[in-house]
Design a protein around this nucleic acid. Sequence first.
DNA 1: CTGTCTTCTGACAGTAACTCTCAAATTCAA
DNA 2: TTGAATTTGAGAGTTACTGTCAGAAGACAG
Lengths: 217, 217
Amino acid sequence: MTSGNTPTPTRTTAGSELEELLAAPLGLRERKKLKTRRAIRSAAFGLFRTQGYEATTVDQIAAAAEVSPSTFFRYFPTKEDLVISDDYDPLMESGLRARPVGEPLVTSVREAMIGPLRQILAAERDEVLLRMQLYRDVPAIRARALVEMQRNSAVMCELMAERTGLPATGLELRALVAAVMAVSSETVQFWAEHGGEADLADLLADAFGAVARSFAQ
Amino acid sequence: MTSGNTPTPTRTTAGSELEELLAAPLGLRERKKLKTRRAIRSAAFGLFRTQGYEATTVDQIAAAAEVSPSTFFRYFPTKEDLVISDDYDPLMESGLRARPVGEPLVTSVREAMIGPLRQILAAERDEVLLRMQLYRDVPAIRARALVEMQRNSAVMCELMAERTGLPATGLELRALVAAVMAVSSETVQFWAEHGGEADLADLLADAFGAVARSFAQ
DNA sequence: CTGTCTTCTGACAGTAACTCTCAAATTCAA
DNA sequence: TTGAATTTGAGAGTTACTGTCAGAAGACAG
């Protein structure tokens, strides 16, 4: 999951689209932009559901959302961004920052991941599962998601460097963060592949436990 | 690093292009194809060096290699494949298969990685470092490489399932393999970023050690 | 309410990575 | 050497994306 980008660089908010809509008196322009953004995304997901991702062209999406193709690209720099961008990452990052410094890394990550995920799932379960499905089935999406994950790793390295005092670009920290991200992401995907029914916290404990055991040998 | 694909699905060999060239009496057709393949790739890498990856168009590469653009795509399904495809993976896979079953996973991986890498480095050091540089700097390449890594993870899951008896699609194994791949890949990249001078075996030991310590908490 | 200033939009032209098709050239096998 | 199989180049078409520009629409001052 990766941070969403608003078309307006002036007013950058980390909150969700929903929150922004509810949050008080945005100008007419801002409200229209939010509406357009949501119209485009929802038209796109509708088409993806019926035709599949690759069979759906940007022109079709633009037509369905009743905007011009130019406008589409103003809101989403690439077709992939429709699926990739969300507001999960900032939530997780701040969650992670909120954890006590001494706490074992694995615990921090687990707690920081689960809160926002539950929150998002409660609101947009279907969309999240469709995303995960696209992530699994569409190479272009998977590719982008992996690149974003790597970018998040860099952020997380910074964050961990602050807590541990290790150098942020040192091999130890980079390797550790890479491992944590890989295990987390694999677990979330496993969870999604099984319908999102199991308890994610338990799965994370299993996964990290298995890795720890094997690495301890 | 990912497995190369030959344009001929009939005669699929896992060996390196060099080996194939030396290996005895291929028909004239086969020899020409190998020659064309190498001409395209070497023309491409030459242009990449001077102009950069993205500034180089497929048409330019085709012109430099004196083939038609159609022919280019017959040899490399995408521009990325020029950089992505190599013959490292099959070597590593067979190396891994050759390790004793009881051995700790980390040791097996370390040993299986290092042999082929040294071998390739001895022959094509410059090209390998250019590849790693492109991998770091060009998003499209990074994306493809990460997807290939994920595909290799699936293969490795199968392999590990055979040895450990764990189910190949179970969370434990998937998480473990994801972690091992992530740490290995991060380490190789770290090594390449530092000019490929340090001893890769030592770096791997450091990286895996750090992860093990942190996960053990 | 009006005029002005800024921002957003759509139309259009262009590029680059592919895909498909077909005929000509080349290699192979008998 | 002839006929079959394979490889090649030419060309037309699709799609994602970029850049430019004029006109429409929201914001704001007076």
